[in-house]
Simulated assay, not measured.
Amino acid sequence: MDLQLKGKRVLVTGGSKGIGKGIAAAFLREGASVAIVARGEEALATAGEELPEVHTISADLMSASDREGVYEKACELLGGVDILVNNAGGSNGSTTMDTSMTDFEDAMQLNYFSAVHMSKLCIPAMQKAGSGSIINISSVFGRESGGKPTYNSAKAAMISMTKSLADEVIKDGIRVNGVAPGSILHPTGNWQKRIEQDPEKMEQFVQDQIPAGRFGTVEEVSNVVVFLASEKASWVVGATLNVDGGQSKSNF
């Protein structure tokens, strides 16, 4: 299927490894021009070697000024942004009572406020163009407990924002949607580390928690992202789609 993404200008945050890098690679395969953002210089350099067509931007998305600089640099490198993928995120803390307020605030900055701010930076030009797509990468744990409270809260906020922003800007030709991955296995991710630490426990986790009987792959997430960003999904507005092999307990 031709997703008609050739020549589209794509910005992926948190794009140097894991799901973000997989998303960047999927857009490149569709013929898009892609810039990725990350704060780790080494991971960015490696991603640039593995994906030689990709543009790399070093920045800390916890910083509002860095986010503004990212947008300016992306416009300089790509000539504008047609598709924004808000993928930057991470997990911190433990239980609510044993987690500091600073950790909660940091989680919101990285997982949620960065997505809100990057969207606000990209939307005015999309409005002028009369088209655009924003994809927010949240988590099934944004809908139900399972991850750390800091992460759950931030991803729940992202899912809510996805719907409210979508309803606000669809009249301008801009579609906002989300993807909520379940447990995705990749070399630099937490699930790989847990497998190495206790393979039997992880095997039991898969049997108990994932009806499909295995971890998901980066490609299975990125395939959904490129579809949602394309005009083939023109009537999908404000949705956050689970990509989880049945792992989520929710029925929506």
Rank of each mutant, 00 (worst) to 15 (best):
residue 83 I to F: 06
residue 103 D to K: 14
residue 198 D to N: 15
residue 235 W to P: 09
residue 19 I to G: 06
residue 145 S to E: 12
residue 196 E to F: 06
residue 105 E to F: 00
residue 148 K to R: 12
residue 153 S to V: 13
residue 186 H to F: 15
residue 224 V to H: 06
residue 85 V to F: 02
residue 121 L to S: 12
residue 187 P to G: 10
residue 34 V to T: 04
residue 214 R to Y: 01
residue 106 D to Y: 04
residue 226 V to P: 02
residue 189 G to M: 08
residue 179 V to F: 01
residue 145 S to K: 06
residue 97 M to V: 15
residue 167 D to H: 11
residue 173 G to H: 10
residue 30 E to I: 02
residue 116 V to W: 15
residue 50 E to A: 14
residue 219 E to R: 11
residue 36 I to E: 08
residue 240 T to S: 14
residue 21 K to W: 02
residue 138 S to A: 15
residue 40 G to Q: 14
residue 64 A to T: 15
residue 91 S to N: 15
residue 9 R to H: 02
residue 240 T to C: 11
residue 63 S to W: 03
residue 244 D to T: 10
residue 203 E to H: 03
residue 146 G to Y: 07
residue 106 D to E: 13
residue 20 G to A: 01
residue 90 G to F: 11
residue 18 G to R: 04
residue 38 A to S: 15
residue 82 D to C: 12
residue 183 S to C: 11
residue 68 E to L: 08
residue 93 G to M: 10
residue 143 R to K: 13
residue 224 V to I: 14
residue 197 Q to T: 09
residue 63 S to I: 10
residue 208 D to S: 11
residue 72 E to H: 11
residue 25 A to Y: 00
residue 47 A to E: 07
residue 25 A to M: 03
residue 50 E to V: 02
residue 43 A to F: 14
residue 3 L to F: 12
residue 75 C to S: 12
residue 129 A to Q: 13
residue 204 Q to D: 14
residue 75 C to Y: 00
residue 152 N to L: 01
residue 15 G to C: 01
